[in-house]
Amino acid sequence: MNVPAASGDGGATTLVAGSSLWADAWRRLRRNRLAVASAVTILALACACLAGPWLIAATWGHDEQSQDLASGPRPPSWEHPFGTDFYGRDLLVRVLAGGRVSLTVGLLAALVAATIGTLYGAVASYAGGLIDAVMMRAVDVLYALPYMFLVIILVTILGKSLLLVFLALGAVGWLLTARVVRGQVLSLKEREFILAARSLGTPAHDIVLRHLIPNVIGPVIVTFTLSVPSMILQEAFLSFLGLGIQAPRPSLGALISDGAGQMLVFWWTLVFPGGLMAVLLFALNFLGDGLRDALDPRLER
């Protein structure tokens, strides 16, 4: 046997960098133009929603709540590019501030859902047997309840606040992730490297955290990206019903709700918030599709 001698210069050797599966996925994602364009769009819109209201307040001196009853509602103009609403509030600021609320709620709720769902699904599936059966039947029961009904009850009992809206959405939204993760882990735990980990004496919680979850993170990221738009829609629906974000604070759902009531007269009050919502949803869905393709190496030729 020719055993290469120990690296000559001891500890000072340079380590050969590896290309991880993440790097490969990143490379594949970059080749997908639609996904990259979507990612750029989302980033740009997020920056606009974050910085926009503040910039406008600094430049023109009006924020999303400052009313000017004499100057509303007006169609788009140089002073108010998106027009003004019934109370003379600048619609551009309100749409951007509403987008900020929607994005925050969507991302946080999806994050809560993904975290709970991943841990729950992985634990249930790896434990197997009775634990799995009990845990997944609980998911089935929750799944059978009308989803929105549950959120409405939660919001009514716990009161109306931004924090509660996304907690309620996330607490109900994890069911799908849990099922996806459980299915993945079910096939994963039969793979030989899990048996190898057991034979190395790796404790169960380390197998779940260090082997199973890193290997299901691909599908989880995809579910996450695709659930952000659905969370935004749910929030919009709650706000539309008057249970979400409370006036005078804007959210995309509340703005669309207001605009829908007067779209035949003041069309701009519906078109601009609706347009931002549509662009966000499209971009998030395309990015989700792109990520799914990039993270699934089997699709690569």
Partner: peptide
């Protein structure tokens, strides 16, 4: 007591570096 597996591409976790793979048993104990 330890095992050497038949198919190394199935018995090594694809998401782990060699360092993580070999450090796992050391960390366990």
């Amino acid at each position: 007591m330890q095992m050497i597996f038949q198919d190394p591409s199935a018995s090594l976790d694809p998401r782990m570096t060699v360092e993580a793979i070999l450090a796992e048993p050391l960390r366990n104990f």
